[in-house]
């Protein structure tokens, strides 16, 4: 195997270190958000303690949909500009998005069971979210299966754009279809319909998850860069 270019590898190493450092800070912020949610936020009157999942499920959904939207945007820009950094970013964002989706798709049923009486229902919001997860698992599988870097970047960019198209539909499903899933309480045209203490905790959790997204994508970008340098040491 050819040794990767020294300067590029140094940059990859610095990015992974910086990204993992940010991720550790974000995990501490996440722990703080958990303490805030469980100890310093009122229990919701109708749902009781089950509603505390809200402070995990919504930030995870936010991070996952942001991650997949950015994959689509970076993919479209890659097809236009052919800059390999956009492909590396899309790869990193897709993997982190799949991880956040896993959190969203496990906390959702844990919340649904005591409130809806069922773990899962095949309504539009849940089904499309599951399909989005499968699209990006497929995206990662496609990347692993194609060995030529240019072909891999082009093929996966097309799939990344397909995923982006699904994101606004997922947001609008609760308006377009009859569904058990509640309508947005924050991301809607009118003011947030949440008491201040709950909104504050949600904002702290969203900030922690967003910071975690930034840290993980930075680290994953560095990992992708190191792998690319091993594939082709002359790569930009």
């Amino acid at each position: 195997m050819t040794e990767p270019a020294g300067a590029g590898l140094g940059q990859a190493r610095a990015l992974t270190r910086r990204g993992l450092g940010i991720s550790v800070v974000a995990l501490v912020a996440f722990a703080g958000a958990c303490v805030l949610a469980l100890g310093f936020t009122p229990v919701e009157a109708r749902q009781g303690l089950a509603q505390k999942i809200f402070y995990l499920h919504v930030p995870a959904a936010w991070s996952a949909l942001m991650a997949f939207s950015l994959v689509g945007i970076a993919s479209a820009l890659y097809l236009w500009l052919h800059d390999p950094r956009l492909d590396l970013f899309a790869e990193a964002s897709a993997e982190v998005g799949v991880m956040f989706s896993a959190v969203m798709l496990t906390t959702g049923p844990i919340w649904a069971k005591p409130i809806w009486g069922t773990w899962w229902t095949w309504d539009a919001r849940l089904t499309l979210t599951l399909f989005l997860f499968f699209i990006f698992v497929g995206y990662l599988a496609l990347r692993a299966a194609v060995h030529d870097p240019d072909e891999r970047a082009r093929f996966s960019a097309v799939l990344g754009i397909m995923g982006l198209v699904l994101v606004p539909f997922i947001h609008l499903t609760v308006y377009l279809f009859r569904t058990l899933h509640p309508q947005p309480v924050v991301l809607k045209p009118s003011a947030p319909s949440l008491p201040w203490e709950m909104l504050r905790t949600l904002m702290v959790a969203v900030a922690a998850f967003t910071l975690l997204y930034v840290g993980l994508v930075t680290a994953r970008y560095g990992l992708g860069l190191a792998r690319r340098l091993r594939e082709s040491p002359d790569a930009p």
Binding site: F30, A50, L56, M99, T106, T107, L223
Partner: peptide
């Protein structure tokens, strides 16, 4: 409710540790 917090923490920690190990291997960092 507790299960949701446990599962989320486990998923996040497993991913971060896995990423750290992969990055260490790929970059030759010690």
């Amino acid at each position: 409710m507790v299960a949701g917090y446990v599962v989320t923490t486990v998923i996040l920690l497993v991913y971060v540790v896995g990423l750290w190990r992969r990055a260490k291997q790929a970059t030759g960092d010690r």
